[in-house]
Computed example of a mutant assay.
Amino acid sequence: MIPYGRQDISSADVEAVVDVLRSDFLTQGPMVPRFEETLARTVDAPEAVAFSSATAALHIACLALGLGPSDRLWTVPNTFVASANCGLYCGATVDFVDINAKTRNMDVEALASKLEAAERDGTLPKVVAPVDFAGTSADLAAIRRLADRHGFRILEDASHAVGGYYQNRPIGSCEFADVTVFSFHPVKIVTTGEGGAATTRSAEIAHRMRLLRNHGISRDPADMTAVPEGAWYYEQVMLGFNYRMTDIQAALGVRQFDRLAEFVARRQTIAARYHEGLAGLPVIRQFVPEGTLSALHLYVIELDQTVRRTRAEVFAAMRASGIGVNVHYIPVHLQPWYRALGFSRGDFPAAEKYYDFALTLPIHPNLSVDQQDYVMERLSYALEA
């Protein structure tokens, strides 16, 4: 089966992990700070904080931004459930903003309209979490203008997007977002096996995130209520969690970042071949605005409504041909948990229509030319059958 995504692990990656396994530290050693420094330097952000997963990073970022039970978080339906669940973890109310049909990211006009209604009703969000779908940045500058007007914080879910650019600046630099979160799951651009991180320009937010990922415990006298009794002394100064990344994961991540530019360039090459090879087929691809470089975590097409076969039939035909196509994403508001909160089909029509016709094709650094040609050949057959 040709997978839709797959990690690329080099001998240098393996050696880096083995070196940690033979060292004195497996968890809280020197590699996590080194990974954080590498990420911060790569995306040109002053602060980077590593976590056990991107979900953990989203949760802690929400807490660090002050999200609580009386607050609201808005995100998009076209995402993995973690983008919304992080608000529920904090006891907040979660709502959604529909997507733009071309970019598949948060529709800024829909957001502006929803904010105006919320301001009249006294129901403005504390946090808005746009998602950089498939590696293409949301329109953060426009969202920042709305944030300045309405007073919400921006939590950019860039789980798909490390190595991408927005307005010719690295995604994660936090030029417009208060916090940006990345994922390093094996199918993402670079991997730590499992892991995530958050970047920010705020030293205060970064400090809160570091405390919250480590049980709320500090060894810094500046955080304490008492004079330290000795070198062993620590205090729990807030209620936190065990969301730490290990040195094993971080060592893999540091080496993976050596090849970030190579990984993104390879994905760009594959995408360009798809653009050319699929040009005559009844499919629609994601629009990438000028000044934006997609990291291309995913290559997602939509079947044109003139296609006689259903998406399910095309999906089944591709899988039967040994091609691991997938679908990203089932709109979050249609999941049973969110339906029970009052959401239903028809609430966010652009996201729902996109989902009905979406299909994710394989894209990863080790996808060969022959494999890609086979994917395009079988897709053409599946669409015409």
Rank of each mutant, 00 (worst) to 15 (best):
W337E: 13
H364D: 12
G342Y: 09
Y89D: 08
N366L: 15
Q256E: 15
I323S: 05
G151C: 09
E15L: 11
N100V: 07
I189G: 06
A261F: 12
V264I: 08
R149N: 07
C86E: 02
E194Q: 11
A265E: 15
A110P: 01
E290N: 09
I248D: 05
G66N: 06
A261P: 08
I301D: 01
Y89F: 09
K353N: 13
S183C: 12
L140H: 13
F80I: 08
Y355E: 14
T191F: 03
I330T: 15
F51P: 03
L65K: 02
P221T: 11
N85P: 00
I248N: 08
Q335S: 13
I301G: 00
E276T: 13
P77Y: 03
G68L: 02
L26A: 09
G240L: 05
A312V: 12
G216Q: 01
S83L: 06
L58C: 05
Y374H: 15
D356I: 10
H59F: 04
Y338D: 06
A206N: 01
H59K: 06
A261Y: 10
D247E: 06
T42F: 02
E302I: 05
H333F: 07
S368V: 12
E377N: 15
R339M: 15
I301S: 03
D370G: 12
D8S: 06
M1Q: 08
Y166C: 09
E119S: 14
A54C: 14
L146F: 04
R311S: 03
A82Y: 00
S368A: 11
A141W: 04
R104P: 01
T310P: 06
V32N: 03
R169K: 14
D356K: 13
A112E: 09
L88A: 12
M245I: 07
D24I: 09
A226M: 14
I270C: 02
W337Y: 14
I171E: 04
H215W: 08
D258Q: 09
A272E: 14
I9C: 02
A295W: 04
A350T: 14
A56Q: 02
L73I: 06
G280K: 04
G122Q: 11
R213G: 00
R145P: 05
A117E: 11
P336W: 08
A12P: 04
H364N: 10
I171P: 02
D304N: 11
L155N: 00
L359M: 14
V94S: 04
L252E: 10
R120W: 03
N214R: 14
P46E: 08
R266Y: 06
V314N: 01
T292C: 09
Q305I: 12
S344E: 14
I284Q: 02
N78A: 12
G172T: 03
L252C: 14
